[in-house]
Amino acid sequence: MFKFRIERAPAPMWTKPLIPIVAILVTFLITSILIILAKANPLQAYYHFLITPLSSTFSALEVLVKATPLILTGIAVTFAFTSGYFNIGAEGQLAAGAIAATWVGITFGNLSPIIAIPLMIIGGFVAGMAWALIPAILKVKLKVDEVVTTLLMNSIIVYFISWLLNGPWRDPISNWPQSPDIGSSAIFFRLIPKSRLHIGFIIALIVVVIVYFLIKKTPLGLRMRASGASKTGAEFAGINVSKTIFIAALVSGGIAGLAGVSEVAGIHYHLIDSISNELGYTGIIVATLGGLHPIGVAISALFIGLIDTGSQTVSRMLGVPVYLGNVVQSALLLVTLGMLLFQNYRIKRL
């Protein structure tokens, strides 16, 4: 008889690309139970989740629209995580970017787009950085756990936006708590007529390329990867780990801020209460699924965008709750994290 033993050792490299595939399969098996409980056929449900959105041009482009902010928050999270800084605050940093974009859009929205749009992008980036600043300082100077502080900063900005929208920025015309629209020159123009796809998608792709380059090809990127992989090792090699983490934390905030700009200028054209709508938290899922590799993150953002779009189709076609999409996403994250744990073990035949 064969005997096996499980031991702690890194799994072979060829298992790496298998992780997302197996994770998706396992997730579908698990969530099938819920779909059956909702009195729908799981196979049909997955067809509508994954295939139907791609079957028409309009809904396929909608997948890209949904993926745009997720690429940015996913990349933001990836940037911080790479250096060992666990930024859970993309949600709030996105909101900060959205506030700045709204302000710039209203104030300078009647100038030429050549001025207004770059100003919004810069403003959103700076605002995201600013919102990431306090946790970063606390981490570097006092070793306060960034997971807690970045998370708490998210709640603060939710209430700040609420105050803005019910007070000074309230649109006098609308019945909803929302800001006035940004000026027409500040609106991100559409890439394809009759779809919502806007230049934010192109900006997101550019950010992917820049971040890939930064992480893989520059000394800063190497310092970040070193600090993230082994703080003691990086320190020993003479790297200023605190400074590296500080930079990574701020840039991460800035990128999340861009997601806010994209949502305001590309989708809503004004600030609303639920501007981030968990995009920041989903960014953590996207980054983890993408293996903290910029290209992988872009792919996983598209995949989550597909499930997002698909969950609406499923709900419409089969009458199951739209929240099923969230369940699938969350289950996928848990399964992936579980699979990453398995990565540390090998099965050995005795």
């Binding site: 090809k217 520059t218 000394p219 190497l222 070193a226 992989a229 090792g233 990086a234 090699a237």
Partner: peptide, 27 residues
């Protein structure tokens, strides 16, 4: 503790002397 297992041999060798391995801010 003094090295970084997840980086390559070449990266570990270069880590202490990064200025020497940088041209125009690129590795």
């Amino acid at each position: 503790e003094g090295t970084i297992g997840d980086l390559t041999v070449a990266e570990n060798l270069a880590l202490e002397d990064l200025n020497n391995y940088t041209k125009n801010n690129i590795l």
